[in-house]
Design a protein around this nucleic acid. Sequence first.
DNA 1: GAAATATTGTTAACTTTATAACACAAACTC
DNA 2: GAGTTTGTGTTATAAAGTTAACAATATTTC
Lengths: 208, 208
Amino acid sequence: MNKLPGKTVERLSEYRRQLLGCLAENKSYIYSHDLAGLLHITAVQVRRDLMLIGYSSVLRKGYDIRELIDTIGRIIDYDEGLNVAIIGIGNLGRAVTGYFRGKRSKLNIIASFDTDPQKVNKVISGVKCFHTQDMEKMIREMDIRIAILTIPADYAKSMAEEIVRHGIKGILNFTTVPLNVPSGVYLEEYDMITSIEKVAYYVKENKV
Amino acid sequence: MNKLPGKTVERLSEYRRQLLGCLAENKSYIYSHDLAGLLHITAVQVRRDLMLIGYSSVLRKGYDIRELIDTIGRIIDYDEGLNVAIIGIGNLGRAVTGYFRGKRSKLNIIASFDTDPQKVNKVISGVKCFHTQDMEKMIREMDIRIAILTIPADYAKSMAEEIVRHGIKGILNFTTVPLNVPSGVYLEEYDMITSIEKVAYYVKENKV
DNA sequence: GAAATATTGTTAACTTTATAACACAAACTC
DNA sequence: GAGTTTGTGTTATAAAGTTAACAATATTTC
Ligand SMILES: NC(=O)c1ccc[n+]([C@@H]2O[C@H](COP(=O)([O-])OP(=O)(O)OC[C@H]3O[C@@H](n4cnc5c(N)ncnc54)[C@H](O)[C@@H]3O)[C@@H](O)[C@H]2O)c1
Ligand SMILES: NC(=O)c1ccc[n+]([C@@H]2O[C@H](COP(=O)([O-])OP(=O)(O)OC[C@H]3O[C@@H](n4cnc5c(N)ncnc54)[C@H](O)[C@@H]3O)[C@@H](O)[C@H]2O)c1
């Protein structure tokens, strides 16, 4: 499977999440337009995405939910799973970690790192917290490849450099600081303020 | 100013955030390529966005940071400001609220709503928490137009319907539940799992 | 003060992403 | 069992978004 459009990758993740919800409701088939409705997109978009990953429906019955979940998994998951660490287990770090727990996935948050002695060596949101001093050791020992950055902005830059040195290959950065990573490391950033300002813009312009 | 591309709106928000950071460092001018660097995009992109909003630089000195911040504000902000409420002041709600505080903006989180008696009537992350029973009254009284949904998934659907009835015009939905809003209400959704799965995909494919 | 340099604004070309069009096949319909 | 319906896979078309190209102009250099 060579290079899916980035947007398709995002939607595959969302399809799967919604499909898992459907499974929980004991459905076993779903039509493209129903799946589309869950994501607020068009049925054509769904069919096109699924075409790209080569998945075919049972004609006129829609897509086999369980099979589709597996197919998506084969595309976007790392076979053996990938280990993830949270760096900075404050409010946001706990929200992320708690959210992940229970959600099955090949992605496991298996450690958090913090400097606060109140937190170090405790289990927080179901995940053991280590001191950042031990980061190098733990990242290698636990084979952690992805880090989620939820520390105060001031430390973000040097922290990013450090974890990249220790072998992290992907970073989801929630701090507002512009990070620079070497090629070979994938960086994704998200800022809620952008989302809310966008909402505000459309509310203001009254465009919906 | 008629209908900017959605992506441009997002970037304007990001430009402003970075520009405010620059102001804090006592810079007063910035070149397109420097601003671009902060967002990991190209200088051309920056120039094109700023062209769209009709802002011109002082030639060869770059953009006047303070002026640009104001110009962006005139485009994306609501003149009198817009009031925002957090619904569900748990881990994520507190993270969002705390993050907003101090960030100047025409967007003010002025209330939170929850059902937990431990939280109601307390000030949490600097914002007063009200009981959801009083939501209708408070939304109208405080002229709240935008809501951020951070409640357990099960309640999301009915909550969305309720707040729309009470006059909310924009929703930022962090629950994983597919919401349906009537036209006239703008809905934005975000899911961290999508972000992380995307990171994982690119790490796996080793495309950077 | 002519030449070189740096940086912008804008049009045009390109790429990516989304939508539309439509032929096709299973499953009803009568 | 011919005809309609329904929902798909795919190719074609359009829209959105990005990058490239380049003329224009203030500043520096010599
Ligand atoms: N992008 C977004 O949408 C968004 C939203 C909310 C918060 N944030 C940002 O996320 C970060 C965390 O926010 P929060 O509300 O969880 O803050 P917080 O203060 O609750 O948590 C920060 C945590 O990081 C720990 N920490 C501090 N320095 C550290 C270091 N050098 N190494 C490791 N850990 C360290 C602290 O002990 C604390 O546990 C902030 O930078 C905030 O601005 C971003
Ligand atoms: N989209 C994302 O990226 C993302 C990330 C983290 C969490 N989440 C989701 O956000 C939600 C909140 O997560 P959290 O970690 O803050 O959970 P939490 O349990 O810490 O907080 C939930 C809060 O909602 C309150 N609440 C419960 N029922 C309510 C109701 N009917 N009306 C008003 N308030 C009510 C609770 O009292 C609590 O304060 C969950 O649905 C979670 O799945 C989404």
